[in-house]
Nucleic acid binder design. Structure first.
Lengths: 197, 197
DNA sequence: ATCTCTGTACTGACTGGTCAGTCTAAAAAC
DNA sequence: GTTTTTAGACTGACCAGTCAGTACAGAGAT
């Protein structure tokens, strides 16, 4: 599993992920061709189909990989913190993630609210996993009295997730010269004020 | 201009707009075929090309039409109001618009942050027109001292626009049974708190 | 009133190109 | 010697855009 052979194969898969995420972020899933992905990754087309079952499966595995990473960072960020600090840590983690994987964030923003696509079910499930971490934190805050008791936990959680995504990507696309630290401050300010009881 | 012939033609164009906006919101621009649009509108494929130069031009005219409407409603909403009331009116107008044209809002959210698409330039321009109305209002608020003097006007304006879009569409897609009035209250609450000096 | 005539709106079969996915034989990596 | 990758020709489905032809409303002409 970690011998030379599979390490090599894992490299190729990573290169294909990187190529696919960039192209799909720019153009969308349908407008991106498998030939493009192979060319950008510097591999032959056959290699794509040696490593992935289909274009759709490549995309689904990409989604799983990307959101899995995000969920893991969310979990690491909140570990052991009290509710209010944990909430701030989540915002920081989300923005840090978007800064590192901006193409994936852009892709998520564009494909997240689609309906009637083959991979839509997968995406919903994964989105749910990431938001569940946020929801646990918000729930803890409500239970401990740190957050307003009448707060709608699932709604607040998904709104928090979406707001971070849209504000950060908007900033990246339309004002790419500005430092991400500013977005982070602005968002933290918003969340802090909103969370005030 | 308003005789039977052009009225009929205008009807057909409207039907094509409606069909196109629904399909593109669900599937995206590239995944939506001209045959699909024609079929949903109940016309022959040739009719699409009789009324529009190309699939891309149909989409661009659709964007112009939809965002033009939004911009007009923004202008009507703020007319004559003092800054803080105008800001609340803008949020209300945006949500009212999204409630009425939910498919168009979904489409906007999905295509807004794309790069490298033929119609991207048009979309940026139109987005700028709508946000300009928000920016004028925010600017007036800063000048009159109703809003913090150190507020970054363009950033705050585009963030406000994007946040309304993402929160409302997220609600519509993932919790469609809930009344939009709740989103409106939640968003107004957020904006009110954030705008506090 | 009926009868051409004319431009407008629309039709749907067809074309040329594009693209996901297949296949092969041989090379390279391990 | 087994796994992974290569290069790219090929197939079949699909799809944007075209075009010759139909339908029909209304505007004179008789």
């Amino acid at each position: 599993m970690t011998d030379g052979r599979s390490r090599r194969r894992e490299d190729t898969r990573q290169r294909l992920f990187v190529a696919a995420v960039e192209l799909i972020a720019e153009q969308g899933f349908s407008a991106t061709t498998v030939d493009d992905i192979a060319a950008r990754a510097g591999v032959a087309k056959g290699t794509v189909y040696y490593n992935f079952e289909s274009k759709t499966m490549l995309f689904e595995e990409l989604l799983r990989h990307g959101i899995g990473l995000l969920t893991a960072e969310f979990r690491a960020a909140v570990a052991g913190l009290p509710p209010r600090a944990a909430l701030a840590a989540l915002v920081r983690a989300e923005l840090e993630y978007i800064r590192r994987y901006r193409a994936f964030a852009q892709l998520l923003l564009s494909e997240m609210w689609r309906t009637n696509r083959e991979w839509q079910q997968t995406l919903r499930l994964l989105r749910g996993e990431a938001i569940a971490v946020i929801a646990e934190t918000v729930r803890a805050g409500v239970d401990s009295g740190d957050l307003p008791a009448d707060l709608d936990v699932p709604t607040a959680s998904s709104a928090l997730f979406g707001v971070g995504l849209v504000v950060a990507v908007d900033w990246l696309v339309f004002q790419p010269d500005r430092p991400i630290a500013e977005v982070q401050e602005a968002l933290l300010g918003i969340v802090r004020r909103v969370a005030q009881t």
